[in-house]
């Protein structure tokens, strides 16, 4: 089981990395869906004492919402958009991949320095969670399409969820469900706004959103 969870973690990190270098909007949505599915499986695989109803509930909730529903909302939001590629990101794909590598390196160094218990420090969970989190933030900042910014946000959120798993803090299931529901509604609202942006500006480039300012 230990190996399987390590493989899943590597996959999760790779998906983030792959999304950073992918210019196709649909491609990015698929990648974030796959990452969401891996995330849903993870709590079932990570060795834990108990294997109660709650874990199954959270895991299936994660799997369905992050693996299917949220990607569905995002592809629905961009169905009227003609340009399906990220055209001019603020930082190019090769450069963002390089920054991604750099972020992964930082995460490993950071994770080894954190005052964590020994068994957590040696596992892959913390460095992977930190790198997914930072790559998500990077994507939120450097991409100009509204959808890719949301995908960055989802990735950032996935990183935080992984961190919660890593410190083996089992939040009461009610709160975990609350967090999941909030994320879902957030993406739902963002999806609606993207749809309106697409209709109002005839594109989903957030570069158009520069009318306000001092």
């Amino acid at each position: 089981m230990q190996e399987l969870s390590q493989i899943l973690l590597v996959l999760i990190a790779l998906f983030s990395f792959y999304a950073l270098g992918n210019s196709s909007l649909i491609g990015c949505i698929r990648i974030i869906a796959l990452q969401g599915m891996c995330l849903g499986l993870l709590p079932l695989i990570i060795d834990r004492q108990g294997f109660g109803m709650q874990i199954i509930l959270i895991a299936s909730g994660m799997f369905i919402l992050k693996g299917f529903l949220i990607p569905r909302i995002l592809s629905y939001a961009i169905r009227e958009v003609k340009i399906r590629r990220e055209m001019e990101p603020l930082i190019g794909y090769n450069a963002s991949l390089l920054i991604g590598v750099f972020l992964i390196g930082i995460s490993f160094i950071l994770a080894s320095r954190l005052p964590l218990p020994e068994n957590i420090r040696t596992s892959l969970l913390v460095p992977v969670s930190l790198s997914v989190l930072m790559m998500g933030m990077l994507m939120m900042i450097v991409r100009v399409k509204a959808v890719t910014q949301v995908i960055g946000y989802l990735m950032f959120e996935n990183g935080i969820y992984l961190f919660g798993l890593a410190i083996s803090y089992q939040a009461p299931w009610l709160i975990e469900m609350g967090v999941l529901l909030d994320v879902f509604v957030a993406v739902f609202v963002m999806g609606i706004v993207i749809n309106h942006i697409a209709r109002a500006f005839d594109s989903i480039n957030t570069e158009n959103l520069t009318n306000l300012g001092d």
Partner: peptide, 14 residues
């Protein structure tokens, strides 16, 4: 529901 409020909403959400 105009372009300016759309921009404000997007920034607020992000």
């Amino acid at each position: 529901h105009n372009q300016r409020s759309l921009e404000a909403t997007w920034k607020y959400l992000m």
